[in-house]
Amino acid sequence: MASFLPIISLFLVVVISLMVVRIATVALVLTGISQQLAQFQARSAFTGAGFTTSESDKVTQHPVRRKIIMLLMLLGNAGIVTAVSSLMLSFVNTGDEHPVSIWLRFGLLGLGLAVLWSITQSQWVDQRLNNLVEWALRRWTDLEVADYSNLLHLGHGFMVIEMEVEQEDWLVERDLAGLRLSEEGVLVLGIERPGADYLGAPRGTTSLKAGDTVILYGPRDVLTNLDERRAGSSGNWDHHKAVDKQLKAQREQAELEKEAEETSGN
């Protein structure tokens, strides 16, 4: 059993590392950046991979994000060193060990990593873990330090994000009027364009370019889908589904308001 303790400790380090990155990702999303960018920044900081200049600016210019990244860097250095040390110790041959035992440890390591990989790819686990982490962060931290959090009902199904427009995105090279984001329940608050002044409350004739950072407000699930939406027929279909969902929500809200009026009238 003692020969398997290093592998068990390795799994514990990996699980804790995954949880740390997940918590940091959700925390960064709560500060107003997109899911994909938050995930990239959290993983980069934890592994020490670093950022590009524009992404580094997004962190250093925001005090809460800066604290999250600094903590990730500290924990990442300790976690990676421990994981590598545990892995090396688990396969050190003392000279009198049976070869079957070594292959058994290889099998245990592969099986454990496969299980962890399947868990990280599960949408069901991902959604519930995100909800749990978000609830815990809101319960025991004060990430939402700005008054606009309450004004915009952030945390009640709505959020504000910074989304970088990429060349393959559904948004690229299209004007705001043609995108019809308002029909999905999404409002464009502003656009940051490299080499140009910040454009607040842009008009419908404004076209989005690759490299733009667009600030959006709307339902969390719609913004998450929009961040992952790519150009082409699949992106158009996602747009139509989001519009239908928004129309259904509006009808349900209208029915609730009508019922409330009838109840109060009686």
Rank of each mutant, 00 (worst) to 15 (best):
M1S: 12
S3I: 10
S3E: 10
L5S: 09
P6R: 06
P6F: 09
I7R: 03
L12W: 11
S17L: 06
S17M: 09
M19P: 00
I23T: 11
A24W: 06
T25W: 00
V26D: 00
L28D: 01
L30P: 01
Q41E: 11
Q41P: 03
A45N: 02
F46R: 04
T52W: 04
T53A: 13
I68C: 00
I68T: 01
M70P: 01
A78G: 05
I80N: 09
T82Q: 04
S85P: 01
L87W: 09
V92S: 11
V92I: 11
T94L: 14
H98K: 12
P99C: 06
L104M: 15
L104E: 12
G107P: 01
L109V: 11
L113D: 05
A114Q: 06
V115F: 08
L116T: 01
S118C: 04
S122L: 06
Q123D: 14
V125I: 11
V125N: 07
D126C: 08
L137P: 09
R138S: 04
L143K: 06
L143H: 05
D147P: 03
S149G: 15
H153K: 14
H156V: 04
F158Q: 04
F158R: 07
I161R: 00
E164H: 05
Q167K: 13
L171T: 02
L171V: 06
D175G: 05
D175R: 05
A177H: 06
A177Q: 10
L187M: 15
L187H: 10
V188N: 01
L189P: 00
G190A: 14
L199N: 03
A201G: 07
T206F: 04
T206A: 08
A210G: 05
G211C: 03
V214C: 02
Y217G: 03
G218E: 05
G218F: 02
D221T: 12
D221M: 08
T224N: 13
T224D: 13
N225T: 13
N225R: 12
D227C: 07
D227F: 02
R229K: 14
R229H: 07
R230T: 14
A231G: 05
G232T: 07
G235D: 09
N236I: 08
N236D: 15
D238S: 09
K241Y: 13
D244Q: 15
D244A: 13
L247N: 06
Q250V: 08
A254Q: 11
E259W: 12
E259M: 15
E261Q: 15
S264F: 10
